[in-house]
């Protein structure tokens, strides 16, 4: 379990993390969301013992990081932002080095084989890390983070700079980790949170602005439960928009789509589709919105400013 209390970090006069408090339980896959410079990376650096907090407490599995740093670091796997590694080493040399430091002993070869397979690095083992593409570098970083099968995995922008296939792979990898681990990932990509996380935390200006499930985050969107329709040709929609269950509507001038917002968060999809059928309106698209995350994100992080 990770317990963070009143965590603060300031650099000179600038406060990067401001009185942040939260707890993470085993089984939580937490997505740290937030604009650039919000304090996500700084928080992760403090959790992993790289930075010392200006004030506040971090306790991990009952140990305080201020006096048990090394013991805590043994339980954490960490992928720093940009996946730094020793460029003059080959992938295999690097993994051996990390495995030695992690004290894997006689399990070493088996663990290395396993992670190489997990992140699909088989063909790159004898390449110098310096000469790897961005995607492979990221995979090497992931491999060193999970090589000791840590109870806590902290990944700073694990999919940054990867192509969609690689992103998919990384997400699968995270999802396939066992259920009793703590995983914290930071990302700019909102869909990633709904795809892999069971908890989302939005951080802006060093403070926590949202903490809940990705679904709860979507519910915050005004598009949550809204219904969007599109017609084959120009149609009178005044009847639709004046239905009792429709509170307001919005027309996207570019695509011609009409979005109907429900009154009192009710499900209006059945009512709308009924109406359309009854009146024989020429529709070609009709769907219920889940809620637009980028919208919520903007709303929550702009409030902060």
């Amino acid at each position: 379990m990770i317990s963070v209390k009143q965590l603060t970090k300031s650099f000179g006069g600038f406060t990067a993390v401001d009185q942040l408090s939260f707890e993470v339980q085993p089984g939580d896959i937490v997505g740290f969301l937030g604009p650039n410079g919000a304090g996500k990376s700084t928080t992760m650096k403090m959790l992993t013992g790289f930075l010392t907090p200006s004030s506040g407490q971090i306790e991990i599995n009952g140990l305080n990081i201020a006096d048990k740093r090394v013991a805590i670091q043994q339980q954490i796997g960490y992928l720093p932002e940009g996946a730094p590694a020793y460029n003059d080493m080959t992938v295999l040399q690097f993994l051996h080095f990390i495995a030695d430091i992690r004290g894997l002993g006689k399990d070493k070869q088996a663990r290395i084989d396993k992670v190489v397979e997990q992140v699909e690095l088989q063909d790159m083992l004898d390449r110098q890390i310096e000469h790897l593409s961005k995607g492979f570098k990221r995979r090497v970083g992931l491999a060193q983070a999970i090589i000791h099968d840590p109870a806590i995995l902290i990944l700073d922008e694990p999919t940054d700079g990867l192509d969609p296939n690689q992103k998919h792979q990384v997400r699968e990898l995270i999802q396939n980790l066992s259920q009793d681990k703590i995983v914290i990932i930071s990302t700019h990509i909102l869909e990633e949170v709904t795809a892999v996380c069971n908890r989302a935390m939005i951080i802006a200006d060093g403070q926590l602005h949202f903490d809940g499930t990705p679904e709860a985050l979507q519910r915050q969107s005004r598009y949550h439960k809204a219904v969007t329709v599109h017609f084959e040709h120009l149609t009178d929609i005044s009847g639709l928009t004046s239905m009792l269950c429709v509170e307001s509507f919005e027309v996207d001038r570019r695509t011609g789509r009409v979005t109907l917002f429900p009154a009192n968060e009710q499900d209006i999809l059945p009512l709308v589709s009924h109406y359309i059928q009854d009146h024989g309106l020429p529709i070609d698209t009709l769907y219920a919105e889940q809620g637009r995350l980028d919208d919520v994100f903007r709303q929550l992080t702009m409030e902060a400013n």
Binding site: G49, F50, V70, A71, Q73, I76, Y78, P84, Y86, R102
Partner: peptide, 14 residues
């Protein structure tokens, strides 16, 4: 410069 210090200092070594 390469940022590997962050890796090194978050490994369980003093």
């Amino acid at each position: 410069k390469s940022g590997s210090i962050e890796l090194l200092m978050t490994l369980p070594i003093s």
